[in-house]
């Protein structure tokens, strides 16, 4: 069975009494265990699509199904990692991670144990009592990642997770996200990542979905059948990157 299935999804937002179409007739399926990248130019509705997939917003028309069922509201088997980290500055690293667990009704003891486990998984041990202001961008995003993973989601959605980081830090974080995705002890095995960096999509994903803008329409669904770890100097990576770029140009 598909983990996610979208059938003719439309999304519009009302602006000054005018209905603005953002996404138009989007249909695709996601299998459990896949790593999907959503690419497209600014304003093509990539982030809106990610919010539809997690049930944060509902489609105007069409069907979004998770494990064959319509999502009535937020999908509690999903979690989100944000570009701007989304951390609470007055809470420590551990408290930021525990907060999402409190909302899911875990006891204080379970919250603590779960947070410590995922702090260890993402390499944040030693930073438990640090505040976000004390952290580098890379460490802040590791907190965002640990907070999302701590709810033990099946589906992890990431909205431009490396865009706020410098080139070398994002290289490190990309490798670490792939390590976590390949870690069989983790509940999460399906990732959907929005990015505007095509090479990043080709280096990481199993499939790249390409959107065109105004309104966002799915124009291509490209399988990336390259073995990992992938090499950015591999001619096959350049060829796929160029092909996707030409679709968006």
């Amino acid at each position: 069975m598909d983990l996610l299935a979208l059938q003719k999804v439309f999304k519009s937002f009302r602006q000054d009494r005018v209905l603005m179409p953002v996404l138009k007739e989007i249909s695709f399926h996601v299998q459990e265990g896949e790593f999907i990248a959503l690419v497209g130019p600014s304003g093509c509705g990539k982030s809106t699509l990610l919010r539809l997939l997690t049930g944060l917003i509902a489609p105007t028309e069409g069907d979004v199904r998770y494990k064959g069922k319509k999502m009535p509201s937020v999908n509690l088997e999903s979690a989100m990692v944000f570009q701007s980290f989304g951390l609470f500055p007055w809470l420590s690293v551990q408290e930021n991670i525990e907060l999402g667990l409190e909302a899911r009704g875990l006891s204080e003891k379970d919250r603590r144990e779960r947070a410590i486990h995922f702090i260890d998984k993402v390499g944040l041990d030693g930073f438990e009592e640090a505040y976000p202001r004390e952290l580098s961008g890379g460490m802040k995003q590791r907190v965002g990642l640990a907070r999302a993973l701590a709810v033990e989601p099946k589906l992890l959605c990431m909205d431009e997770p490396f865009s706020a980081l410098d080139a070398l830090t994002s290289l490190t974080l990309r490798e670490e996200v792939l390590m976590l995705w390949e870690d069989k002890s983790m509940a999460v095995n399906t990732i959907i990542m929005v990015t505007h960096i095509i090479e990043e999509a080709v280096l990481m994903a199993d499939r790249v979905l390409v959107l065109s803008p105004h309104p966002g329409t799915l124009i291509s669904d490209i399988p990336i059948n390259l073995t990992r770890p992938r090499d950015k100097n591999d001619p096959a990576v350049s060829k796929l990157t160029d092909h996707i770029f030409s679709l968006m140009a």
Partner: peptide, 16 residues
């Protein structure tokens, strides 16, 4: 500098 930057540098060199 941060540990992430140093590891990123090494990842980059490895690719090259």
């Amino acid at each position: 500098v941060s540990a992430s930057e140093v590891i990123g540098l090494l990842e980059y060199l490895d690719d090259e």
